[in-house]
Design a binder for these strands. Structure first.
Lengths: 240, 240
DNA sequence: CGTAAAATTGAGCTGTCTCAATCAATGTGG
DNA sequence: CCACATTGATTGAGACAGCTCAATTTTACG
């Protein structure tokens, strides 16, 4: 709600080439959608670590994109544990669902501090029907979300615990590397082992053991909120 | 490609109120999309039971809808078991993925004999940009597919074996009842226990035990390719 | 610096799987 | 229409992947 229009572009998103966030921000300045500048209005909202910023029961009127920091998209079962659907890195849309119906079906929890931007659903849909670029872009983001869900189904349904953990680490590794190509040989890794447990549907205790084994086999190193995959090929082999 | 235009409507779909298939067939006759009748061309293709009609590696140029019979949408892992993503009943779209990219990512296997119709992707997308009805309709089908995937993630990640089986039975029960409101107190149930096993990520042996227990507790009856849930509330309780 | 949160380690347990044998159902050719 | 072949369902015994509980150590944070 603050420093919106002056210089557009979403710091981290820019590093991801043309991240969705940038496309949308650019769109906000596109003359087609209105006579004035910020036709596709949006609000920038900062968040701190370890907070629930959206709850699965609430209805929302905006489509949000992470700009900085890590957040987790999760689903909660009434009295039990929760399942992490995915960890969202800067530039990624928080959930496609609200495009089609107001009820957000996922709970969004922040992991690190950061910020997100919310775009008005109706404006966005209007934009989709005018710009084929934005249409493609948004639907492709939805499609990606679906592909990830399908992969998670395969992980949970068909793969063993070590495979799941290895795949999660590699997935994050690859995604981070893709959006930050140059940064050294380790990546930022703010996840706690409980996050990994919730994402792989294992217990924190068992995750600890597996991570320990990976470490002892010289496959990975985690320290100081950073991850380094020492032997990528071997870990990939292990990930089946 | 045969008896298309004469009398539109897709037998079973009609029973589901305005199933997607009907919407699309109607659309084929809608004058807006062309000067002539069958603007949204489609082909009707029959299939026999127990066949793979699409493989996950192939690329397709059509969006298909089941018209009669049961089929399963599955994902296969190179050397292992397969995971059933969902069982599709008449009137349901086979996969949304191809709307966005040519690669079908799921394998489609028939369970019973039946038929499906394929609509041309490009024509469909064109139709989406012209008709807001079709736009809504299709995206809502995609959204439903995503919702189901999310539910499956919850099932596989967080629920026990009995819960998963109970939920699968109830899900099919509810869906079938909804599209066939009047039909007696049992439903058609062509699934083998291996289908249930592949959908719940359990072994056929264990599924057999659970189904046996459900039966012995007076919850369900399965015989002669038909399912009757005797004590719906109790089974729902069990499904958590 | 003290307190809370996260990670590690070990011991024992259990839900679900594997293997294997048997039985029932379904489909096929003569 | 029947004998056989194939596929699916059931049952039991034993195994193991991953869980629970609990205690301890390490790390993060106000």
């Amino acid at each position: 709600m603050s420093q919106a229009a002056a210089k557009p572009g979403c710091s981290n998103c820019i590093m991801r080439g043309l991240g969705l966030c940038d496309v949308l921000l650019d769109l906000g300045l596109d003359q087609r959608f209105s006579g004035e500048q910020a036709a596709l209005s949006q609000q920038r909202r900062p968040f701190v670590a370890r907070r629930t910023i959206f709850h699965q029961d609430e209805t929302v009127d905006g489509i949000s994109v992470v700009c900085e920091g890590w957040v987790a998209s999760t689903m909660r079962l009434s009295k039990g544990r929760q399942q992490v659907l995915s960890f969202l890195l800067p530039g990624e849309m928080i959930a496609c669902g609200p495009l089609f119906e107001p009820q957000l079906r996922v709970t969004i929890e922040t992991i690190t501090p950061g910020c997100y931007r919310s775009f008005d659903r109706m404006q966005l849909r209007a934009a989709m029907s005018v710009s084929s670029t934005i249409f493609e872009r948004i639907l492709s983001a939805c499609n990606d979300e679906k592909k990830r869900a399908d992969q998670l189904i395969l992980d949970l349904g068909l793969r063993t615990a070590p495979e799941r953990v290895a795949r999660l680490l590699l997935d994050i590794w690859d995604r981070f590397k893709k959006s930050n190509p140059d940064k050294g040989n380790g990546i930022e890794f703010p996840l706690r082992q409980t996050h990994i447990a919730d994402a792989t549907s294992l217990t924190p205790v068992y995750v600890s053991k597996l991570i320990g084994e990976f470490h002892d086999s010289g496959l990975i190193e985690i320290s100081d909120r950073a991850l380094r995959i020492v032997d990528v090929p071997q870990l990939r082999r292990l990930a089946a």
